[in-house]
Amino acid sequence: MKNLVLLGRICFALLFIMSASGHFSAETINNVAAKVPFASVLVPLSGVMELLGALSILLGYKAKWGAWLIVLFLIPVTLTLHQFWTIEDPMAQRMDMVNFMKNIALLGSALLIGYFGSGPMSLDAIVHKKPVLAH
C-alpha cells in the first residue's frame, strides 16, 4: 500500500512539473497580462513556486511545505484565470469550468498532502526515521 502513496505523489507532482516551464515563455506571460497586473514578474514567480512545490512533493522532502506552495499557487491562478462565470460562449465557458474544477480538485489534493505529508516512501520518512535503541 505504501507504493500507492508514492504513485499518487508522482502523478500529482508530474502535472505541475510539466506545466511550470510554460510560465517562463513570452507567450504565456502575454496571455496572462490581460488578466493579471505585473504578469512579467508574477507569472515566472508562479512557475518557480509551482516547480519547487512539485519537486518537494515528488521527492517527499518537506512535502508539507511543497504542498502549501502549490496551494498558494492554485488559489490566485484558479480565481483569476478561470472565471468561467464571466464567459458568454457556452463551449468556452464549459472548458474554463472544467479547468476551474480541475484546479479545485488539485487544491484538495494539495491540502491533503499539506496535512498528512509525503508518506512512508519519501525523503521525509528517511530523515525523520527514529533510530532503534539498543537495550
Rank of each mutant, 00 (worst) to 15 (best):
K62W: 10
L51R: 04
I17R: 03
L133N: 15
I113W: 07
P76F: 06
H23D: 04
M1W: 10
Q83D: 13
P120G: 11
L69H: 03
L123S: 04
P37D: 10
K129S: 12
W68M: 12
I17T: 06
L58P: 02
G108V: 00
F16T: 03
K130Y: 04
G114T: 00
F24G: 04
V132Q: 15
S25H: 10
D89M: 09
A134I: 13
A110H: 05
L14D: 06
F16Y: 09
V5K: 11
L45E: 06
L72Y: 06
M121S: 05
W85E: 11
M95T: 14
K2C: 03
I70S: 01
L81W: 02
V36T: 14
V71W: 07
C11M: 15
Y61L: 14
F38K: 06
F24N: 09
N99T: 13
M1F: 13
L112F: 14
P44Y: 02
N31A: 14
K130I: 07
A105P: 00
S46D: 04
G22H: 09
I75L: 11
L111H: 02
G22S: 13
L52G: 01
D124W: 02
T28W: 05
I57Y: 00
M49Q: 08
G60C: 00
A105H: 03
I87F: 11
I10Q: 02
V36Y: 14
L51E: 01
L81I: 00
H23V: 03
G66T: 09
G108H: 03
A13M: 03
L72F: 12
S109D: 04
E50I: 04
V98H: 02
L106Q: 05
L55Y: 05
L74W: 10
E27S: 14
S109E: 02
I126V: 11
I75E: 07
V32W: 05
S25L: 12
F12A: 06
V32K: 03
A67D: 09
S46K: 01
G53K: 03
H23C: 07
W85C: 12
N99V: 08
L59E: 08
E27V: 15
P120T: 00
S21E: 13
M91W: 03
L14K: 06
T28L: 07
G114N: 01
A67S: 11
A20S: 14
I113G: 09
K102H: 01
S118K: 05
K35F: 15
L69V: 08
G119R: 04
G47D: 02
Y115A: 08
L15D: 09
P44T: 07
L106M: 11
Y115E: 11
G117A: 01
V43D: 05
A110P: 01
G8W: 09
G108M: 03
N103L: 01
S109H: 03
M121K: 12
S25F: 13
P120N: 07
L79Q: 07
G53W: 01
I70Q: 01
A34M: 09
L107T: 01
G60N: 02
K129M: 13
I113M: 09
H23K: 09
F24P: 10
L45R: 03
S21P: 08
D96Y: 06
A26I: 15
A92R: 12
V132W: 15
S118T: 00
V132H: 15
S19D: 12
V48C: 03
G117I: 00
G47Q: 02
V98Y: 10
A54Q: 07
G108K: 00
G117W: 00
